[in-house]
Amino acid sequence: MRRRHAKARVFAKFCGLVTWLGTALLLVLLWQIFSDGLRWLDIDFLRSFPSRFPERAGILSALAGTLWLISLVAIISIPVGVATAIYIEEFGGKGKLVKIIDINISNLAGVPSIVYGIIGLTLFVRGLQLERSLISGALTMSLLILPVIIIASREAIRTVPDSIRHAAIALGGTQWQTVWSHVLPASFPGILTGVILGLSRAIGETAPLIMIGALTYVAFVPEGPMDSFTALPIQIFNWVSRPQEEFHELAAAAIIVLLVVLLSMNSFAIFIRHKMEKKLQ
């Protein structure tokens, strides 16, 4: 009996230690980035284009590119992903087709991002002749994160109890009315979580963008989806690979900006989710 308790205590300690280890590593990383980059971070850094002189270099084009990219990705991937999840869960039945789609989506979630880059290059850049434009990048990124959004949305839709669906059907609702007014609102918080996971991944991915040939030096702000572009991760990658110490610090500053964009996106989503959940209770 005593040995069992001892075992339990040791295990709990071990779990606690591992949790703290992960957090501590993250803190060290953050501290290093902030101490390197913070002094470069000012309004001029956000307002300037990249330059070969560190003191004049900025991230305007990369930040604009990232914001453009993420907006386009959201516009493309959210409707497609959620609609796919609804079809599979609510309308698809148990046919072979749905099973095949199901297996494919699960597999796609595990495909390395560079492979999506190759698909994007052949399909969008060359096949559809969209060139190295924002829209090519957004379509490629959408492909990359669709599995994440679909899987999370399906999970969320599945947690809506059948009793709600039955109630709506019994009140003379069609299946679509049932999904639109009851299933979707009830699964919205879960769907939002999936969307955020997906978009967060898209915002940080570099490999597919390099593959489809997003530019590393861009001295203009994209004005439409057909313009060529760069993005924060590419700018960071570019600066880190230079020999001068100053550029490494600039990269750290850009990472801070990327983190801020990411965190504000996430907190906005959490805010909406919190509001929705409150409304449901």
Binding site: P161, S163, A167, A170, L171, G172, P185, A186
Partner: peptide, 19 residues
């Protein structure tokens, strides 16, 4: 079937109000 359920309503075993 939707038309049928207009005329024939149903109350279930467990109360299932919409949230």
């Amino acid at each position: 079937a939707v038309e049928v359920r207009h005329h024939i309503g149903m109350v279930f075993q467990k109360p299932n109000p919409f949230p």
